[in-house]
Amino acid sequence: MRFTENEMTQAMAGAAKSVLAARRDVRRGKRDVDELWETMDRHQRYQLLSSLGSQVLPVLVALPDVDVAPGTRPTYSDRQVLATVEEVASDDLGRVRRAVLVRARVALVQAALAHVPPRLDPDALLGPE
Rank of each mutant, 00 (worst) to 15 (best):
R24W: 12
H115I: 00
G14C: 00
E129A: 14
N6H: 10
L60W: 03
Q10E: 11
G29I: 04
L48C: 11
D121G: 10
A112V: 07
E7W: 05
P117F: 02
E129V: 11
D65L: 11
V102F: 05
L93Q: 14
G127D: 13
T4V: 04
L63H: 04
P74Q: 10
G53V: 08
V26N: 07
M8F: 08
T72P: 03
T75V: 14
L82C: 01
V85N: 05
M8P: 04
R23H: 09
T72A: 11
P64W: 09
P64Y: 08
A11R: 01
V85S: 03
L120P: 02
G14Q: 00
D78C: 06
D78G: 15
E87S: 11
T75A: 13
Q44L: 08
P117A: 06
D67L: 11
A107E: 05
M8C: 13
D78Y: 01
E86D: 05
S50T: 14
G53E: 04
M12S: 05
L60M: 13
R42T: 14
R27Q: 12
V88M: 06
A104N: 14
T9L: 09
Q47R: 15
A99F: 01
L108G: 01
L108C: 07
V19R: 03
N6Q: 14
Q80L: 04
Q44V: 07
V109W: 00
A22Q: 15
H43K: 13
L36G: 08
V33N: 09
R31V: 10
P58T: 08
T4M: 08
A124D: 13
G94Y: 07
R79F: 03
